[in-house]
Structures are given as structure tokens and as C-alpha cells.
Simulated assay, not measured.
Amino acid sequence: MADIHIDEFYRDSAIALVQLFSVFPRRINLFVEDIAGPDEPDEFGLHSPRHMACFGALLWLEEEGLLRYVDTIRQEALDQAVLTHKAFVRLNTPAPLDLTSRLDLPEPGVPGPEDPLPPSVRQDRSTWVHVLRQSIRSGRSSTLTTAMQAAFFAPIGN
């Protein structure tokens, strides 16, 4: 049986980290609905299990030292969230070139013959954050799961 909740955890975590990376070092409010989609609380004001799982993933990222925040906004957002040094360094680190072929993504640092890229663009496309962005865009949970596991289980510099 597939552990769908783990796939959703990887997706939510990747989206949150990419959102924070794209505005780094600015602090932002990180809304659960922007990550997991719209949610209507029930007649008792309780959020759906999907919403709460995403909120839990955000809290876990903080507990593991990947992001910081000032406070929660009910169970709807993290107030003034920012990446930690640990997450920023990891997302900026070059990913192994063979990873993109295993993920069935275009190789980030290698231009095609019809699309020569300047060195600065090739460098930007070789990072873990680019791999995560491409994995999110692919829409395949297996690709995103593999990318997240590779990004956060590999030692820095690999």
C-alpha cells in the first residue's frame, strides 16, 4: 500500500522550501492554503486532515532546523517564516548531474545542442532548489519523493 501521506509531506515540504528560497532572506507569511490548496473548516471550525497534515509538515520543518518563524497564525500560516542557514546552504548546493536522468528531468547544468546556456544559468540550474522546482513541475509524486530524499539525505557537497 502506498503511503500517500508521505508523498504529500514531501510535496508540501518541497513547495514550502522553494517558496522561502525564492524570497530569501526576506521573511514571509507562509500560508497552508498556498501549499495544500483551499480548505473550508467544518461546522466546528476544524480544518481537514489534509490541511492539518500540511500545517504539521511546516511545523516539522522548523523543528528539524530548516526554517524559522515568529509565530503561527492560528493553524493557517507561519508568521514571518524564513529559511535557516542549513536549508539555504542545502538548496544552493549543486545536485549530482546523474540525478536528473534518474528523475527523468532535463539535466539542469547541461545545455542541449539547440539551447546553449551561459555559465551563470548552467550554475543556477545545477542546484538542489532547481531540481526541486523541476520535480514539483513534473507533477509526479515518485519524482518529487526521490528528489526530496536525495536533497536532504545526501551529505553537503554531494
Results as ranks from 00 to 15, higher is better:
44 F>M: 05
32 V>S: 13
153 F>Y: 11
39 D>L: 06
36 A>G: 13
51 H>F: 02
30 L>R: 10
28 I>R: 15
139 G>P: 02
116 P>N: 08
39 D>R: 02
117 L>R: 15
85 H>C: 03
18 V>P: 01
83 L>Y: 07
1 M>N: 12
120 S>G: 06
97 L>D: 14
94 P>Q: 10
42 D>I: 07
140 R>M: 10
33 E>F: 06
12 D>S: 14
118 P>L: 09
19 Q>P: 00
82 V>R: 08
5 H>K: 11
102 R>M: 02
103 L>I: 07
125 R>S: 11
35 I>Q: 11
12 D>T: 14
34 D>E: 13
76 E>D: 03
100 T>V: 05
66 L>T: 05
131 V>Y: 06
100 T>C: 05
68 R>S: 10
74 R>W: 07
123 Q>N: 09
144 L>N: 02
122 R>A: 14
6 I>C: 03
5 H>L: 12
34 D>P: 01
155 P>E: 00
144 L>Y: 04
113 P>S: 08
59 L>P: 00
94 P>R: 11
121 V>I: 13
41 P>Q: 12
5 H>D: 10
9 F>Q: 13
28 I>T: 15
114 E>T: 14
77 A>D: 02
142 S>E: 12
12 D>V: 09
9 F>M: 12
3 D>V: 13
120 S>F: 13
146 T>S: 13
148 M>Q: 03
55 F>V: 09
106 P>G: 04
70 V>F: 08
33 E>A: 14
118 P>D: 05
14 A>R: 07
127 T>N: 05
94 P>D: 14
158 N>M: 03
147 A>C: 07
55 F>N: 06
143 T>H: 11
100 T>I: 02
131 V>M: 09
149 Q>E: 08
93 T>P: 01
141 S>E: 10
4 I>G: 05
122 R>P: 01
112 G>I: 04
150 A>Y: 03
94 P>T: 10
69 Y>D: 00
57 A>R: 00
76 E>Y: 00
58 L>K: 01
50 R>E: 10
142 S>N: 12
151 A>T: 15
89 V>K: 13
80 Q>H: 12
109 G>Y: 04
137 R>P: 00
49 P>T: 10
16 A>G: 06
106 P>Y: 00
129 V>M: 01
38 P>S: 13
57 A>E: 00
140 R>G: 06
51 H>S: 08
107 E>W: 03
62 E>P: 07
32 V>C: 10
132 L>M: 07
123 Q>E: 14
145 T>Y: 01
132 L>T: 06
129 V>H: 02
83 L>W: 05
96 P>W: 02
100 T>E: 00
154 A>S: 14
2 A>H: 09
24 F>Y: 15
111 P>A: 08
134 Q>V: 03
99 L>F: 03
79 D>Y: 15
12 D>Q: 08
47 H>F: 07
91 L>C: 08
91 L>R: 07
68 R>F: 08
7 D>G: 07
117 L>A: 14
7 D>W: 05
145 T>Q: 08
125 R>F: 12
110 V>F: 02
49 P>V: 04
12 D>P: 05
147 A>S: 08
106 P>C: 03
38 P>F: 07
8 E>F: 14
119 P>A: 15
18 V>S: 02
15 I>G: 00
158 N>V: 01
130 H>I: 04
152 F>N: 05
132 L>R: 08
65 G>S: 12
2 A>P: 03
42 D>R: 07
121 V>G: 00
73 I>C: 09
88 F>V: 05
18 V>G: 01
19 Q>A: 10
43 E>C: 06
13 S>Y: 00
41 P>A: 09
20 L>V: 04
